[in-house]
Write a protein that binds this DNA or RNA. Structure first.
Lengths: 225, 225, 225, 225
DNA sequence: AATGAATGAGACTTCATTCAT
DNA sequence: AATGAATGAAGTCTCATTCAT
């Protein structure tokens, strides 16, 4: 299992305080923070708006977090932690050529299930690539993206070992393209999920995975008309 | 040719003032603005930093622009205008099944040439998707993205007419995925262009287009192992 | 009793914050604000000068008030409220022809007593007519002036009922003239109160009321030499 | 004839430049300035708005006037000069007891005629008392008000000599009250002149003078019920 | 004689953060 | 444990004024 190496060490006392808070309060705070960071970016986010949305006092916020960055990092990492838990259980090394694309399909379905919950951490995670562009927010978001990148890389590398994934592009580029197509798909599904019934949605989800497979498949490599 | 319907009408006197400025000054200001908006987002951008980078006085900035939003919109639209000019001349309706993928390859090369200039407007354009997520910046960036979306859609629709592009996914999803893979590729190339010599780069550029083709190709549609 | 219909509703949290402040601080702030608004008008008033005079920080001011207008409105309304309390207790409907002018005299004396305190709210109130001329300040000052106008009108109307007040001029004009002569008198007394001893002042105060009576008296109506 | 001792000496070259301007331009500038000073006060007035309203360039304004204050003073004094011309020709020393109140009536009619023109200088003049309250504008407006005060005083003093005007109040107070009632009346007439036909208006104008007479008349002095 | 580009001080306002209670 | 009053730096924007052309 790939490890998420948080940068949020040494938060000090605040960390424990926040973790000992009862779950509802914690959720309210994290959700309010995530919403604000998502919509306004890191620099544009206002702690005033966050405490108002979370219905807590200013003192409380600074009791639980050292500063704005701490809140941001905590929010981001918590989102990542939950995604990790949710997507978690794929054993990449056990994949074979015949199970490889089915595993991808399975991942696509899991991710669809996750999306349907419409929770703050899924939405926030989709903003990571954008937040990374903000100089001040980049550091906080990088570990999460690094993790996703590494996981994707390991998956693709295994595919190349098995001869199922194309080799004509540098791995780092392949990773970026895969992540991008994945994120764009997730975003589209979040925006359009109400337009399809359960059955139509299931088909769509699989069709999307087919496209990813076609994009990555070693079978087409070098192929020319 | 698809039109870019600017929202930046009625800027009033300021527009003329800025347009009558000599080219170098204008470029300095636009580049400084673009850089700041790119790195900090709209809300996080500081006019103070911009005027410092552009080496102009506060009063001057407000002599050329009505307010922060005006500067942002002007910067964004100017970037879009230049991209439009650069990418311009593809006659989508004249494409045939046999020229379709070659045209895509040509586009890929044009876009590579553009990237190699490393100008502010290319970099800014790559930030549009992120800026769109910012509530206050969305309106300014939307026309540019709409234009890109429409252009992509027309290209893909023509491909479907010719039987070269897959039909098993909704057009809007196909458009999003195409744009995403495109943007991610551009971004990767900008970050790694120094790692390859001219010849290696040329091959890479074409290989990237191949991946896009494999992703879109109707030949794989429904195809199953 | 005529009601003062304040426009300063929905100030939100700020209102409570300011009202819970200890009296001295509140007075310092209000007095500083009143002084500045009086001397420079609404648009010309500088919050910087106000916070310096009141010896509070910029942040504090914005903790107690939403913005400049909120401070202005609060100051104006507080002034009105206090004047109302001070002038309060005249039962207009109980006046008779024989008590009418005595009541006016009593009002004159009360108003003299009020003036002698030389408090910020009396001085500010005398600036209301001028502040009304300022477009942006008009709305805040209007209720106070309306109240004064309505009160004056009721008093004069009662006098006309009793046959003591002239009827040869439109009521609204009569009201304006009465208020004007009143305000001018107050202003004169504030500027010259140190030039008279207690006894001389008492006589003057009454003589001024006589003039108002002569101006309004029905006995002269139509009278011609 | 009472002299208007302007404070606007030593304006330097600018004065001549402005005076040599053709009449229309001069009127536009003065009217625009008067309007702005009237509505926003001296400190709140914006030269930017004035040059926009007058349709002149910023450079021109500073070519004709030394600074904001110079424009203000010039505007104020020009207004005063015109009022003086208009009201001018009363020979106070020639008044007798039998012509005294008729002269007042004549003044009332003249002032009504003036008002009906609705020119900028009449409206501005009505703002003088308010502008005087603004610390920075006081000096400019004072000479004009002083002149009005002195003229009024001479008129009232002559009345006292003739035994037609009351003596039971200090002259300075009498002057203030007279001016106040006058100004309030003018203001009311400006606001309501459209509500009456020519004949009704004529009666009103005279009735207003009657009220002033009743207020000042020595016949009521000391008079008590 | 006239223009309008340029300036920097100062306007109002919001911010993240501290700290006495 | 928790509050919210207090702060001053920095935000966007307007101002009166100068000056090269």
């Amino acid at each position: 299992m790939v490890e998420l190496s948080g940068i949020n060490k040494g938060r000090g006392v605040a960390r424990n305080r926040f973790e000992n808070l009862d779950v509802e309060r914690r959720e309210e705070i994290l959700a309010a923070g995530a919403q604000e960071f998502m919509v306004r970016g890191y620099a544009g986010a206002s702690l005033n708006r966050i405490i108002e949305a979370a219905d807590i006092s200013k003192g409380q916020l600074y009791y639980y977090f050292n500063d704005k960055e701490d809140l941001f990092v905590t929010t981001v990492e918590e989102a990542m932690r939950r995604l990790l838990e949710a997507v978690g259980g794929l054993s990449i090394d056990d994949l074979t050529a015949s199970t490889y694309w089915d595993a991808l399909r399975e991942l696509g379905r899991q991710s669809a299930a996750l999306r349907s919950g419409d929770c703050w951490y899924v939405r926030l995670a989709l903003s990571f690539p954008r937040l990374r562009e903000e100089r001040e927010a980049a550091a906080a978001v990088r570990p999460a993206l690094e993790w996703a990148r590494r996981l994707t890389e390991r998956f693709l590398a295994r595919g190349q070992e098995l001869g199922t994934v194309r080799r004509d592009l540098p791995m780092s580029l392949l990773v970026e393209l895969t992540l991008a197509v994945d994120e764009a798909g997730d975003r589209w599904f979040m925006d359009h999920h109400h337009e399809y019934d359960e059955d139509g949605m299931r088909k769509l989800i699989d069709a999307r995975v087919d496209l990813t497979r076609d994009m990555l498949d070693a079978a087409h490599e070098g192929w020319d008309r």
